[in-house]
Amino acid sequence: MAQSGSPRYKVVVCRNLGPDVMPLLESRHELELVIWPEDRACNRKWLLENIPGATGVIVMLTDKVDSELLDKAGPSLRTVSTMSVGYEHIDLKAVSKRGLKIGYTPDVLTDAVADLSVMLALMAGRNGGIGYSLVLNGGWPNFSWAPFGLCGPQLSTTVLSPTRKVGFIGFGRISQATLSRLVPFGITHCLYASNPSSPPNLQHDAELQSKYNLKAVLKVDLDELARESDVLIVLAPGGPSTYHVVNEDFLRKMKKTSVLVNTSRGTLVDSDALAKALREGWIWGAGLDVVEGEPNVPKDHPLVKEPKCVIVPHIASATLETRKHMATHAAQNLIAAILGGDMPAQVDLSAFSLIPPC
């Protein structure tokens, strides 16, 4: 127990972090917790009403941290801890100006996102959305089997198709974890495009090529990436530099049998252009965990209306293990920032305009 008269620090928590993680906060008697009581996104009005005088706040991706919120919090605020790897919802200039510490949760969701990337590649290529809808809507009994009905391009190599090229937009830890999962399918080439200002790491690429017995691991330009990739997986950071990097011009260069997967940020893919590409057959299919403007993706959304587009509602990190780990890091970041110690992961605000690679 904290001694009588010892300081207590108000902490606002924008979502209950569950029975495995909340005790980390509740056991710290120096902290006075104010917890959003409902099992839904934190109400902005509630947050603005409760943030004054807080020393720390734990937020989700849905909670915007801007000058309005920071001004309401006042000079007592020391830290913002977000239960996410991305921090586009945080005004980094504003928090840097106030000298705050920002905690986030990188690395812990690498495997979960890589797993889902492969799942979406398989579902999009093998008409998983169409097949599932056929059964769900009761159409299977009346479906007429045909030799090439519901066929799609095979992800793995075959005697007739001995070459398979996977492409990545962004080639950070999640892309490389995804590559490791695709290697057993017989992937022969890995192509990637990343920050044009960063030179290729030839030694690292050669090590990956040797490790996975690939014919090539190459950094290429976007045109070559579009033309050559059988499966193209978008795993790059968001922001102005990558906005609509997959646009109509890019999609028109892709193979008619290629599959596009996006498990990073919805803003990287032009939804209207992708819907047109699917509708007119420029590419085979798409698997999306993220869509620009989400969660405002109603049933009449252009991509929802495309049968060859498989969409799941931003669940790439949604494993029990990953979310528990993310919540734990968010709590530990806050505790360290307020009570002392090393934060598991702190945003470098000296380069606040940069988004960490996926």
Rank of each mutant, 00 (worst) to 15 (best):
L136F: 14
P196H: 01
D223V: 12
T163I: 15
C14W: 00
L339C: 08
V135A: 13
M254E: 09
W284V: 15
P307Q: 05
V65M: 08
S4R: 14
T263A: 13
I58V: 14
T158Y: 01
H329N: 13
V220T: 13
R15D: 00
A331C: 11
P199C: 07
F250P: 07
V290H: 06
S96F: 10
G340Q: 00
A286P: 08
D63Y: 03
E248H: 04
T79K: 05
A351S: 15
H189V: 08
L77K: 12
P37K: 04
G167Q: 08
H89E: 14
Q3I: 13
E68R: 10
I102E: 05
M60L: 15
I169A: 01
F185D: 00
Y9F: 14
E321L: 15
T158H: 02
C358V: 13
L208Y: 06
P295W: 06
H329C: 15
L136Q: 14
V217A: 00
T178F: 05
L320S: 09
T242G: 06
L232D: 12
N333S: 08
H244C: 06
L218G: 05
I174E: 08
K308N: 12
L334E: 02
R181M: 07
S353E: 12
G281E: 04
P356F: 11
W284G: 05
I338T: 12
S117R: 02
T105I: 10
I58C: 03
E68S: 10
E32Y: 01
W36C: 12
G149R: 06
D63A: 04
A112K: 03
L191D: 10
N43H: 14
S144G: 11
K308H: 14
L160V: 14
R265D: 03
C42T: 10
V59C: 08
L225N: 04
V95K: 00
L61F: 11
T55M: 10
L208K: 03
